[in-house]
């Protein structure tokens, strides 16, 4: 079995007349957390949406576990075990928490053990089980979005900026949850602007700029190299402690 679960080779994506991705090469190792970092507009979200088939790759190849998914439809990619948490969270606000979670199950029924594990990550969801999801706070919605992604055993979690707009305490809770998922050998591709989060959970890192990957390596190496961070991300780490 290959070490690489997801690979993108020379992926280009056009949205209308705009050429967004200019040949993205990216590998996601099995059982590891790969961070995808970059400035706003670098193409991170487009990369995730292209992986999910929500936007078509105009050139290049995407493979999941060695199987080509470049032209696969979104539902088929999801059925192959890829869970997606979009930047907008994708919560169905008119449905209850339970209904949101039910939609993510394969046959409408919960595996009780898995459900209790998920409540272990996010206990607040148990108390809000029959509440309308639209009434949850921003942090609770993000927890629901991630809980929905992990309620079934998945091969890959694709998560887009889960900390966006959240309070520091909630971010710490999410970091803890991500680390527990990591300990359970879950493979995660995580787009993040919050460097504290990236440094806390990432094993590998890829940095994007202008629609291409400009840096690949270990997250620990990037976290240790402030000059590299400054060059790649324009970051002053002191402001992200």
């Amino acid at each position: 079995m290959s070490d690489i679960l997801l690979s993108l080779s020379g992926v280009h994506t056009h949205i209308g007349s705009y050429h967004i991705l200019h040949g993205v090469d990216l590998s996601v190792r099995r059982g590891k957390v790969t961070m995808l970092l970059g400035r706003n507009g670098a193409g991170k979200t487009t990369t995730l949406r292209t992986i999910m088939g929500l936007w078509r790759a105009s050139a290049g190849a995407i493979a999941l576990d060695g199987r080509a998914i470049t032209d696969a439809a979104t539902p088929d990619i999801a059925r192959m075990g890829v869970a997606y948490v979009p930047e907008t969270m994708g919560i169905f606000s008119q449905l209850t928490v339970r209904e949101n979670m039910t939609l993510a199950t394969a046959n409408g029924r919960f595996d009780e053990t898995r459900l209790e594990e998920t409540f272990g990550f996010f206990p607040v969801l148990k108390t809000k089980w029959n509440d309308r999801a639209g009434l949850l706070s921003g942090g609770q919605k993000q927890m629901l979005a991630i809980a929905r992604a992990i309620i079934e055993r998945r091969r890959l979690l694709v998560v887009d900026e889960p900390t966006k707009g959240l309070a520091p305490a909630i971010i710490d809770h999410l970091i803890e949850a991500m680390n527990r998922l990591k300990q359970a050998q879950t493979t995660i591709l995580l787009v993040e602007q919050n460097f504290h989060m990236a440094r806390s959970v990432g094993d590998d890192v890829a940095v994007m700029d202008d629609g291409v990957i400009v840096h690949r390596g270990a997250m620990a190496d990037l976290a240790a190299d402030e000059a590299l961070q400054q060059r790649l991300l324009g970051l002053n780490l002191a402001s992200h402690q």
Binding site: M52, L54, A73, T74, P75, A78, R79, Y84, P86, G90, F92, L103, A104, A106, R148
Partner: peptide, 9 residues
Amino acid sequence: EMVEALGFR
């Protein structure tokens, strides 16, 4: 879009 991302055609 999210319904599709959850695997429904």
